[in-house]
Design a binder for these strands. Structure first.
Lengths: 341, 341
DNA sequence: ATTAAAACTTATCGCGCGTAAAAATTTTGT
DNA sequence: ACAAAATTTTTACGCGCGATAAGTTTTAAT
């Protein structure tokens, strides 16, 4: 700790016995200066805890080191987790990530992009709301700022997308369910929040037909991101109405499944894969809480790690090369067998 | 949309037929200019979508309009929810909030505060990690930046704290559990992540003694923020070892309870408050997922809304007046009766 | 030791805006 | 209509740092 407070880079350069441009170079890239001077700066840094003013920095740099990360709903542990993962990778790559949540609101999503613009980010990792997104606003933004989409694709905007191979998800878990018991009915939202749901439904239908079974789809009314509540309410209704024609239910995602399990409990239906159980329930995503449902949820795990790694790598590559193109990078899911199915 | 792109405030002032300082005044406070000129500016704003450069603004302003919000663990829906709530209130008050997560890591918490310093925030709302927090780092930061603590207190730093009246929580739910069945055992972590746990334990003991019951505390080994896993693993161990002396378990928080419910399920124990159930389980917090456990979790709800409102109000008041003092503002909990107890 | 390359210094400009003081203009009250 | 008050314009400076160019020193290579 120094007695004199360092106000700016000029003063800091003075106490470290160097010129300001050299110190400036160091902060932009520590390896761009001679090792001996780097050591001198870092020694001075220990003594005087100085940090360049981030506003002054970003005002002048052609390219900031900022990266914006936008997810549709941070209160969902799935997005909290993947957001954290992506954030960490950006930090490791020497960037300054900031995480934003659209809170399920298309207007807020557009507003975040607008205010992101003034941050002059090097790049943006965007998990769009999906169906309800303001495509025009997103398109306009992406023309100016290198952007990689993840989790949910927006075809036709010429953007790189990184996510899960949803049809493969459905194939895999339908195969498993048919192999181990009755073929599954599919439980989903009537107006799903994002397009992945459509691919999962289609994957389910294809997989069922390939195995010679009649697809059976049950749809839940309801809008928004309160998936558990929708799953509980509509699941209960569909159960009462006898809409499920087999004893096995594949939910479009884990949060819906969690709500559906709640509905089963309320109706006194024992869930599981053993003889005494009345119904089998499976989900998709491997939500952080799926391990702790009663019974623990059988599901198809998204490859969080691969998706976040690939999303960041692709963004940095686009930033460096300046070449963007519409291509989708998809990762397979992994079957997590627990007790619910 | 204009044909000419506005680059800076100078140009924008030109197209709106005003001088730059007047426009500058407008952006600092739209009411500081005459209504007629305000209208002119806002008309021009419609045409030319210009935004002041955020870096240039903050470089010169004595006080930014930034507010930092730091929570210990954003992947926990509880903190995601309260973070969102606080964020919205700051926005409504005309500030620019940014949410950060310490990810359960004291070093990261200190690092966030350090980097927050360079954002020159008007104020900071901090939910500290608690026990493991680097008190020295926090104290140093709070001397320079107006800060209000929430969720978890750090006594002795002269800061305003807004949170729950934890002893009251325990009293209330112990009363209910004793009234409706056997007195509860208390299940908690041996080395809890934050000091609220200690107050809840103490509240439990006091409440039990007041009713003439022998307190019974069962502690779970384990560190970190994987509460569900700790609750499941250690809960199962304690159940097997017969450490619970009554048929009722009050968990220190809902996440622990969710894990404990999972342990009960694994052991084939039916949880609930009716005759056929083997055990009753209750939590504290009213975690967003507690509604959807099987059975739904009886718990004591934190007053999210009151806490976040009060936290923001107090911060803004401190910012304006410049007077800070060590005082605690506590809110009572509300009993949420569901089926688990 | 000689020389070229690499690293550093000095000097200067500009980024976009806040801020302040003085002068010019408009609005308000009577 | 006229003075006082409120607002706006003009002018000017500074914030902290990036960027660049020209000159000087250090390092590495032959």
């Amino acid at each position: 700790m120094a007695v004199t407070k360092i106000k700016n880079m000029e003063e800091f350069a003075a106490v470290s016995g160097l010129s300001r441009p050299t110190v400036s170079k160091y902060f932009n890239d520590p390896n761009s200066v001679r090792p001996s001077t780097r050591a001198r700066i870092e020694a001075a840094l220990e003594e005087h805890d100085y940090r360049p003013n981030i506003y002054a920095i970003n005002q002048n740099r052609r390219l900031t080191k900022n990266i914006g990360i936008v997810v549709p709903y941070l209160a969902d542990p799935f997005f909290a987790e993947i957001g954290r993962n992506v954030e960490q990778r950006c930090l490791d790559a020497g960037f300054h990530p900031t995480v934003y949540s659209s809170h399920g609101d298309p207007e807020l999503e557009a507003e975040i992009l607008e205010s992101l613009r003034s941050l002059k980010p090097t790049g943006v990792l965007l998990a769009p709301l999906g169906r309800s997104s303001d495509r025009a606003a997103i398109e306009k933004f992406c023309k100016d700022v290198p952007t990689v989409l993840f989790d949910s694709a927006l075809p036709g905007l010429g953007l790189t997308f990184v996510g899960s191979d949803n049809p493969q998800f459905a194939r895999m878990i339908v195969d498993y369910l048919c192999r181990s018991g009755q073929p599954p009915c599919f439980f989903e939202m009537k107006t799903p929040a994002n397009p992945n749901a459509n691919r999962r439904r289609q994957g389910y239908i294809t997989a069922m037909e390939r195995l010679g079974h009649e697809p059976r789809i049950v749809q839940a009314e309801g809008e928004g991101w309160q998936f558990e509540e929708i799953g509980r309410k509509e699941g209960g209704r569909a159960l009462s109405a006898g809409e499920f024609t087999t004893n096995t239910v594949l939910c479009s995602n884990d949060r819906l499944a969690i709500g559906f399990l709640s509905a089963c409990y309320e109706m006194g239906l024992r869930v599981g894969r053993d003889e005494s159980a009345a119904i089998r329930v499976a989900g998709q995503d491997d939500h952080p809480f799926s391990r702790y449902t009663c019974p623990p949820l059988t599901t198809l795990a998204q490859d969080y790690d691969a998706i976040s790694r690939s999303a960041v790598e692709n963004l940095l590559s686009i930033v460096e090369s300046g070449e963007k193109s519409e291509n989708a990078i998809l990762f397979e899911g992994r079957l997590i067998m627990r007790d619910s199915a």
